[in-house]
Deep mutational scan, measured.
Amino acid sequence: NMTTNERRVIVPADPTLWTQEHVRQWLEWAIKEYSLMEIDTSFFQNMDGKELCKMNKEDFLRATTLYNTEVLLSHLSYLRES
């Protein structure tokens, strides 16, 4: 059983600085953390943090459901504000 610390993704605090690998790690973490289903992860495959942060609700909806979109966008905006 993993502790919270072991599951925590170590990525730069500012999502606009993320590499493609960071985006992948964040997505994998969010899927596990929030038990998200039905995400087309290939949609995010060649995307870095700058591109991710430019995405709006409609962009996310092409890859996943409305619920997942709201979870991911709210977590992303939380990270950008902190």
Rank of each mutant, 00 (worst) to 15 (best):
N1W: 02
N1V: 07
M2G: 15
M2S: 09
M2K: 05
T3M: 13
T3D: 03
T3W: 11
T3E: 04
T3F: 15
T3A: 14
T3Q: 08
T4W: 11
T4R: 07
T4K: 12
T4A: 14
T4V: 12
N5K: 12
N5T: 14
N5P: 12
N5V: 06
N5E: 11
E6G: 07
E6M: 07
E6P: 08
E6C: 06
R7T: 12
R7A: 05
R7W: 07
R7F: 07
R7I: 05
R8T: 06
R8F: 07
R8S: 06
R8H: 11
R8C: 05
V9D: 10
V9N: 15
V9G: 15
V9K: 15
V9C: 13
I10H: 11
V11G: 14
V11N: 14
V11W: 15
P12M: 09
P12C: 07
P12N: 11
P12I: 06
P12R: 10
P12A: 07
P12E: 15
A13L: 12
A13N: 15
A13M: 11
D14W: 04
D14I: 03
D14N: 10
D14G: 04
D14Q: 15
P15L: 08
P15Y: 03
P15M: 05
P15S: 02
P15H: 01
P15A: 07
T16F: 12
T16A: 14
T16D: 10
T16L: 09
L17M: 04
L17S: 12
L17F: 08
L17Q: 13
L17G: 14
W18Y: 01
W18M: 02
W18E: 03
W18A: 01
T19V: 04
T19A: 05
Q20S: 13
Q20C: 07
Q20Y: 09
Q20R: 10
Q20E: 06
E21Q: 14
E21L: 09
E21N: 09
E21M: 11
E21D: 09
H22L: 04
H22N: 12
H22A: 05
H22G: 09
H22K: 06
H22V: 07
V23I: 04
V23E: 00
R24M: 08
R24A: 15
R24D: 02
R24P: 01
R24H: 07
Q25P: 00
Q25D: 06
Q25V: 14
Q25G: 11
W26E: 00
W26I: 01
W26K: 01
W26A: 00
W26S: 04
L27Q: 00
L27V: 13
L27G: 05
E28C: 12
E28R: 12
E28L: 12
E28F: 04
E28Y: 08
E28Q: 12
W29D: 15
W29C: 11
W29K: 12
W29V: 08
W29L: 08
W29S: 15
W29T: 15
A30G: 05
A30V: 09
A30I: 10
A30K: 07
A30N: 08
A30T: 10
A30C: 10
A30S: 13
I31C: 05
I31S: 13
I31W: 03
I31G: 04
I31F: 02
K32E: 12
K32H: 04
K32G: 06
K32C: 04
E33Q: 10
E33H: 06
E33I: 03
E33A: 07
E33Y: 05
Y34E: 07
Y34S: 09
Y34C: 04
Y34H: 09
Y34R: 06
S35G: 14
L36V: 06
L36Q: 02
L36R: 00
L36K: 01
L36F: 06
L36E: 02
M37Y: 14
M37W: 08
M37N: 03
M37E: 08
E38H: 06
E38C: 08
E38L: 11
I39W: 02
I39Q: 01
I39P: 02
I39L: 12
I39G: 01
D40L: 00
D40C: 01
D40I: 02
T41M: 12
T41N: 09
T41A: 11
T41V: 09
S42E: 04
S42G: 10
S42Y: 05
S42V: 10
F43P: 10
F43A: 10
F43I: 07
F43Y: 12
F44R: 00
F44C: 08
F44P: 01
F44H: 01
F44D: 00
Q45W: 14
Q45K: 11
Q45A: 13
Q45F: 09
N46M: 08
N46G: 09
N46C: 07
N46W: 08
N46F: 13
N46R: 14
N46Q: 10
N46I: 04
N46T: 14
M47F: 05
D48W: 01
D48G: 08
D48P: 05
D48N: 06
D48C: 04
G49H: 02
G49A: 00
G49K: 00
G49C: 01
G49Q: 00
K50C: 05
K50Q: 13
K50S: 11
K50F: 10
K50Y: 15
K50N: 14
E51W: 03
E51N: 08
E51Q: 13
E51G: 10
L52I: 02
L52A: 02
L52T: 00
L52N: 01
L52R: 00
C53M: 08
C53V: 12
C53Q: 09
K54D: 14
K54P: 02
K54G: 12
K54M: 13
K54F: 02
K54A: 09
M55R: 03
M55P: 01
M55H: 03
M55S: 03
M55G: 01
N56W: 06
N56K: 15
N56E: 15
K57A: 05
K57L: 06
K57R: 10
K57P: 07
E58W: 07
E58R: 11
E58F: 06
E58Y: 13
E58N: 14
E58Q: 14
D59N: 04
D59C: 11
D59Y: 11
D59I: 02
D59F: 08
D59T: 07
D59K: 10
D59P: 01
F60A: 01
F60W: 08
F60Y: 15
L61H: 04
L61I: 05
R62V: 14
R62T: 08
R62C: 06
R62Q: 14
A63F: 08
A63M: 13
A63P: 00
A63D: 13
A63V: 12
A63S: 09
T64Q: 09
T64I: 01
T65D: 07
T65K: 03
T65C: 11
T65L: 02
T65N: 11
T65I: 00
T65G: 10
T65Q: 06
L66P: 12
L66W: 13
L66R: 10
L66E: 13
L66C: 11
L66Y: 11
Y67N: 12
Y67M: 09
Y67S: 14
Y67D: 11
Y67L: 08
N68D: 15
N68W: 00
N68M: 00
N68T: 08
N68A: 06
N68L: 01
N68S: 10
T69P: 00
T69R: 02
T69M: 03
T69A: 14
E70G: 07
E70Q: 10
E70H: 12
E70T: 06
E70D: 14
E70Y: 05
V71S: 07
V71P: 04
V71R: 13
V71I: 15
V71A: 12
L72P: 01
L72Y: 02
L72D: 01
L72I: 14
L72G: 00
L73D: 06
L73A: 08
S74G: 13
S74L: 05
S74C: 09
S74D: 13
S74T: 10
H75Y: 06
L76N: 01
L76I: 04
L79S: 15
S82F: 09
